[in-house]
């Protein structure tokens, strides 16, 4: 049995589940795609560059993000920011995650 391969697959699964929370969390300030990819990579949260924009488009479609093109800079860039609804959803999602993570933590430590 290849333990590393199984662990990598399972880790990938819970990373995928928390990706939206992570992305929303970075959108409290206007941010563009490549900066976000770099920022997450620095925190060892891997996201494929080709996944990010489609994901942000979907979140925008759901009304959680807003976007605008900045053309003042040398290169035109698309900035994303949490919408008013997005802020509410993010705060609720964050609270839900914190509660869940704490429960999992307690379970793993054998406190429950």
């Amino acid at each position: 049995m290849n333990h590393n391969e199984i662990v990598a697959g399972l880790t990938q699964e819970f990373r995928r589940g928390t990706l939206i929370l992570v992305v929303l969390g970075q959108m409290r300030e206007p941010t563009y795609g490549y900066i976000l990819v770099k920022k997450l990579a620095e925190c060892e949260i891997q996201i494929e560059a080709n996944t990010l924009y489609p994901l942000m488009r979907r979140l925008e479609g759901q009304g959680l993000l807003e976007s605008r093109w900045e053309t003042e800079e040398a290169k035109p860039r698309k900035y994303y920011l949490l919408s008013e609804d997005g802020k509410i959803v993010y705060e609720k999602l964050k609270a839900s995650w914190e509660k869940y993570a704490s429960n999992v933590d307690n379970l793993l430590k054998g406190e429950i």
């Binding site: 563009y32 795609g33 490549y34 560059a49 990010l52 924009y53 093109w69 290169k75 035109p76 698309k78």
Partner: peptide
Amino acid sequence: VSRELQEL
């Protein structure tokens, strides 16, 4: 999408 890809 073309603009997004161009930027990225």
